[in-house]
């Protein structure tokens, strides 16, 4: 089971990095989302993998999984929504403003030339 989770983290990280290295905003945002999953699961695993022992207290149960990473990851998930939304908005605004969704600043492109130059 550990192997599955770890490999899932690894594959999502690799795919995320590859997409982040693309040249347009949309794949970069998808890549960031994948990295977010990977990081959240990685943080979650700091409580180690436990099956069938949710941290909801019951009278007759004594073993629970680690609640702390769960609490931290929960807020991380919600905040990553906020972050994704902001990044999407910035990317969208940049595209709408310049009809260009490249992530790299390419000074040699003619439409990026500074004011006053022909």
């Amino acid at each position: 089971m550990e192997l599955l989770i770890a490999s899932a983290i690894g594959i999502m990280t690799a795919a995320g990095i590859y997409l982040v290295l693309r040249l347009r905003t949309f794949p970069v945002i998808l890549g960031i989302s994948l990295l977010t999953y990977a990081v959240n699961i990685f943080l979650f695993t700091s409580g180690r993998l436990v099956v069938g022992a949710p941290p909801v207290l019951r009278d007759d149960i004594t073993t629970y999984t680690d609640p702390l990473p769960q609490a931290l990851v929960l807020t991380a998930i919600v905040i990553s929504f906020g972050m994704t939304a902001v990044v999407v908005m910035i990317g969208l605004g940049a595209f709408l403003g310049s009809d260009d969704d490249h992530v790299d600043d390419q000074p040699d492109r003619s439409d990026d030339a500074p004011e006053g130059t022909p």
Binding site: E2, L3, I9, I11, T13, A14, L21, F42, T45
Partner: peptide, 28 residues
């Protein structure tokens, strides 16, 4: 880019895998 991504993925896999099989150094 595939090379960079593969290196990153492999690193996070290795880290996560070894991490999950061990107890924390300090008590939680």
């Amino acid at each position: 880019d595939v090379g960079v991504a593969a290196a990153g993925g492999l690193a996070s896999f290795a880290l996560a895998y070894h991490y999950m099989l061990r107890d924390p150094v300090a008590s939680s």
